[in-house]
Nucleic acid binder design. Sequence first.
DNA 1: ATATTTATGATTGAATATTTCATAATGATG
DNA 2: CATCATTATGAAATATTCAATCATAAATAT
Lengths: 262, 262
Amino acid sequence: MRERNGSKEERQEQILEYILQYGSISLQEVVQHFECSEATARRDLEALEKAGRVIRTMGGGAKPAGLVSGREIPFHEKQNKLYREKESIAQLAASLVEEGDVIGLTGGTTTYLIARALKNRRNITVVTNAVNIAMELSENEDVQVVLTGGMLRSKNFELCGPLAERTLEALNIHTMFMGIDGFSVEQGVSTYSELEANTAKMMMKRTERTIAVFDHTKAGRNSLFQVAPVTALYGIIIDEEPGEELRERLASEQVKVFVTAK
Amino acid sequence: MRERNGSKEERQEQILEYILQYGSISLQEVVQHFECSEATARRDLEALEKAGRVIRTMGGGAKPAGLVSGREIPFHEKQNKLYREKESIAQLAASLVEEGDVIGLTGGTTTYLIARALKNRRNITVVTNAVNIAMELSENEDVQVVLTGGMLRSKNFELCGPLAERTLEALNIHTMFMGIDGFSVEQGVSTYSELEANTAKMMMKRTERTIAVFDHTKAGRNSLFQVAPVTALYGIIIDEEPGEELRERLASEQVKVFVTAK
DNA sequence: ATATTTATGATTGAATATTTCATAATGATG
DNA sequence: CATCATTATGAAATATTCAATCATAAATAT
């Protein structure tokens, strides 16, 4: 190949660098900067777009949304699978919230949608350990947003660890909506991550009423780390009627079951 | 005018809504959705682009970077005024950081640049109350990022209030870089906001060495809320040699003065 | 030494954008 | 109420940018 000024990879890295600094780049800037043809410039931008690191504009490229220094922030959108189900769960959850409430939200897709459903409320307080949820809600001045402290987990922008737990000690939450990865009669609610499980546990301790929110694919499944037995729950919100056994057990434990309308 | 389905404003709001949900929209989608001509669709996207709420792509529009639900996150770029000065301050600050250090960073443009300068370091811990700084650094797994808790101030994404202060009580910071709005011999360091001043004060209490960072436009100026007298500082980093009087006073107080190379 | 792969540049037709003008609806003015 | 200016819109012409294809040269493999 006839490389003039460095390899394709270097060029693309530099384009990225440029975009990160200036926000965008024009095709002509690429051409002049690297003394390459338009075809090459376009191909570079195309490759970067495919990698999700650049959004192509008319005559150039720009920084894509939802990326902070090249990483994606989980601001979930409708593309997500089970969006409709999760959205209906979120709507139901939001309907349980009243003015003046102090709400707790763990991290997760469903809880993020609950946050969005609460976005235009007045006079509520939301406590969360998820940075993306906090940012979404902070737009509204009428919603007081409290972020727990803690170590920032880069993968999902959740705050965890002893510091998060220490912060929670100072708070009293009325109703908490807990996103989980697994739910069963025997094991109760569980998550994939130990850190998240611990933070959720701590959050529960500071909460009057804990409501687990999850879609039907999580029901009857167990994840690695148990957060709490079903008896510790005030209620669950789910998008499908639970099975006979589960329903009976929940009834006997006085756990409320909210099922979304189809 | 011949309005078919609602006004221009409504249409543009709906386009925005759509983009917020799906991430992007095509010209044809706009045309079909609103039953308008391509010209109108383009004009709408053009107007939204001008307002900074949409980034125009080839054949459509998309969510611009740095916007969360329509608001800008302060991820500062080279356009900022005094960028060169602040960058040089940041570089100097970063050069004072060694492996294993526990660093504190308040919110602000300069401290954000320090964070960026520290981004590729290994084995350091950064404590901050600024969400954007935390997010920037969390990309690197080798930097441990600790976010203080607290109320999220929507304007600048800083965490403040009693909870932030409570979190800090559990931490011991080695060197803290403090961004400020004013610096003078008499008043010491000061900021515009009382909340920020309080949080900074608390952070200082938990810090061995506090270094104030600011550009020359801040020197000799006082802001409303005092954070600390000069005697409480370990040092300052500034981009211009301070005046005679200031220099003498700082020398007598054993406050180190770091001036960036031109 | 030859073949293969890869990166690049050039060309051309297609898609998209910009500009300009015409028209219809709305509101203001006398 | 007639007239005029303003605004929103659509249509058409022009200009720009893009995508696809092919050719070529360098690097790599056989």
